[in-house]
Design a protein around this nucleic acid. Structure first.
Lengths: 145, 145
DNA sequence: TCTTGAAGCTACAGCAGCTAGAGACATTAA
DNA sequence: TTAATGTCTCTAGCTGCTGTAGCTTCAAGA
């Protein structure tokens, strides 16, 4: 299949596929007589994997690791496991943050109920530290509590 | 206060503050005799607002809008409200996606319980379309190259 | 068979949102 | 006074794409 079909099938844009090849995330594709890239089902699987991993929030580097692991399947999977666990922790952090931020945004919307900006708290809510869930303790050297 | 103190107080790195000034997100700071930036409490509030808004997932453009609204507080706050609502919707989408992806990652970790990569499903889980929430239709059975 | 229009090619520029480095000047504590 | 630290400007780099220009190839219709 050509690059356009591959992109449609995997849900990835064509320039992105070429970019992935360029940075070595995908192997160099075979070419047709007219120099066009040709892909196999296997390539589709790999690209689909990449897309899903990106959606999971893996960096391209982590994905590269994962792919190289899958290319050598006779190793213990501790490494893949470690990568996945790290990502899981990362995602749980993000989830918690997003959840609390959603509460703040809802408050913002609720407090901005038709008045003028002078009356509404949108700006203050975001300037206020009291709803600050993340622990940015304002001084680098200081340990987190 | 100088830029370093401001950065510490707001939880924002010094080059980032200068960057924000450069792109017009923060007003140009007053300077000391020695040409160093000096900030007021008001500037700290503004920067804190920016940091929180960034954490909420607002783009710098959205933040710019919000700030310009807050600079003209005699307007109705419908615009701020609209921005906040749009962000809220965006955040709820992200939350939903992250939540379902967390489930997948947990499955990945669970299925990779000490075997070798050949036995574990980390790779397959991410290549599998059956948990695919997004609607990228793709046809099966298109010939491999 | 010819033609046309979509899809492909390479190469490069640009985007957001920072971050890091070089080399010079300012401030501050001892 | 001197040394350390902080700040200055400027420039370049980073990730992960996305878009453009100017060309070639391919598939389908007349």
């Amino acid at each position: 299949m050509t690059i356009g079909k591959l992109g449609q099938a995997a849900g990835v844009k064509v320039p992105t596929i070429r970019y992935y090849e360029q940075i070595g995330l995908l192997p160099e594709a075979e070419r047709s007589g007219g120099n066009q890239r040709l892909y196999s089902r296997k390539a589709l699987d790999r690209l689909t994997f990449v897309r899903h991993a990106r959606e999971l929030g893996f960096t391209l580097d982590a994905i590269r690791d994962l792919l190289s692991l899958s290319d050598h399947p006779d190793q213990p999977c501790a490494a893949a496991d470690a990568i996945a666990k790290a990502q899981l922790a990362e995602i749980e952090k993000r989830l918690a943050r997003l959840a609390s931020l959603k509460v703040e945004l809802k408050r913002m919307v609720a407090q901005c109920a038709g008045g003028s900006i002078a009356d509404c708290r949108v700006i203050e809510v975001l300037g206020d530290h009291s709803h600050c869930s993340t622990d940015h303790s304002h001084r680098e050297g200081e340990g987190a509590s």
